[in-house]
Design a protein around this nucleic acid. Structure first.
Lengths: 245, 245
DNA sequence: CGAACGCTTGATGGCCATCAATCTCTGTGG
DNA sequence: CCACAGAGATTGATGGCCATCAAGCGTTCG
């Protein structure tokens, strides 16, 4: 990162797993070319698009999703600051899903050339990036389990617990209290539920005094019982100790 | 591959996307160390296991899955000959899911050292391997959409269409007729359904003369209508033309 | 030959989708 | 400044999809 700048979300996230030197942090910065602001709701990459790019999300929230012909939508994952967009499908000729801005966001393109160069020069940075991609994959898999085999209540609880871990990791809030700009429609599309049913689930969780999601803020009131309910095991997040010191 | 041997499933699969030279095919062979036979039902990697390895599946069918504490199981993906096992989570300290043999299988470990060496010496081979991993990811994502937003019938149809493409790719059967050793329990765990309901769905598909799955054989009777029903779009399989000639 | 496994069918009920309506809040233009 | 539109949240009513319980069948294998 540049001298004097506060650490970016991405460097904060990667540093939690691989201790990066000043040179490596500068190389990480070097990956980022032109910064581009995007308005809420706008699409960055459209499913089926050729020559798609990868990005780093510097600020704001985005989501990756697929739309079916009958109009229903499945959100695959949300991206928070510090996350990569589209890195895992960079090798496919056409993007296998779409990306859209949830809030106003700021992304910067990752140039393929500088990525390869950085990997060649800094194996530790390469490790950190691959780790991040692997973690994202593990989250998609857990998301699959969530939808396939958990009830609506468990699913919802699980989702907010995972999100809490992610937000704490990048220093935006804590595991039990964080800002969340998603609408109930976003959530229901991620959880494979109708927005109406999700609303009832949220009410139940509130009434059981487990967690509250209102006005863009998540407050987990009883984390222990919520974890129990969701059968949440954070092992797959792989964040309990640094990978490389 | 060794002189005179028939092409392995993995080389057949990768060759469909990246034209590999004799040297590169030999490097691919060099990744494979000791061949290990595994009995049906046996687990190869157990969720949470540290120091897990990656494998190439030479013959037979395997599956990757997660088990919840309440005993229900979610199959993430099935692996057919030529597929990699555990490659995408190699960087995580603990495996995020389990692998088990469906039929009797033969796997060989991928040595990390030889993998890195092969990547350094043969960028084309590296591209081919990354492509395969990316395609597998795209399949997991599509699987997520399948479970989240398609009805049981659509889901089931989609599953068999995808599988047909995969089997045809490795030259074991055609897109509309192939052997499939999975039980209805395997299938229901993959599709997030009860085995009983899946059974009824299969009957309906049979009665509608769209497809038959019986005695270990899948026969797609009316592929066009099945594709329509499932809203199947094979774009995400990224196999409509070679990546590198 | 019995046990185990896999497949099949019937009956019942619950979870969750869908339709419909209301309410709040915010932003916008007249 | 207010009327209005639109997005988001909320609640009620109804019904269908699919889970679950229960039972029986065929096949394989020890």
């Amino acid at each position: 990162m540049s001298l004097g700048n506060p650490p970016s979300a991405v460097s904060k996230k990667l540093s939690a797993f691989v201790a990066l030197s000043g040179d490596e942090l500068r190389a990480l910065d070097g990956l980022q070319s032109a910064v581009r602001p995007i308005a809420p709701g706008e699409q960055i990459v459209i499913e089926g698009q050729a020559n798609h790019q990868a990005f780093i999300l510097n600020g704001g929230w985005a989501c990756s999703f697929k739309v079916l012909r009958n109009g229903s939508r499945q959100v695959v994952d949300f991206q928070v600051p510090g996350d990569f967009l589209g890195l895992r499908s960079l090798l496919l000729r056409k993007s296998d899903h779409s990306f859209a801005a949830v809030t106003a966001i700021e992304v910067c393109e990752i140039s393929k050339a500088s990525l390869l160069e950085a990997f060649a020069n800094s194996p530790r940075l390469a490790t950190a990036v691959f780790w991040a991609v692997s973690r994202d994959e593990a989250m998609v898999v857990e998301h699959l389990v969530n939808i396939g085999r958990r009830s609506a209540t468990e699913r919802t609880a699980h989702f907010f617990l995972e999100l809490g871990d992610r937000m704490a990791l990048i220093g935006q809030g804590t595991r039990t209290a964080y800002a969340c700009p998603l609408t109930q429609y976003h959530l229901s599309d991620a959880l494979g539920l109708s927005a109406i049913h999700l609303n009832r689930i949220l009410r139940q969780l509130r009434e059981k005094k487990l967690m509250v999601f209102q006005k863009g803020v998540v407050t987990i009131t009883n984390r222990k019982r919520l974890i129990e309910l969701a059968q949440f095991d954070d092992e797959y997040m792989d964040e309990n100790e640094p990978l490389l010191r």
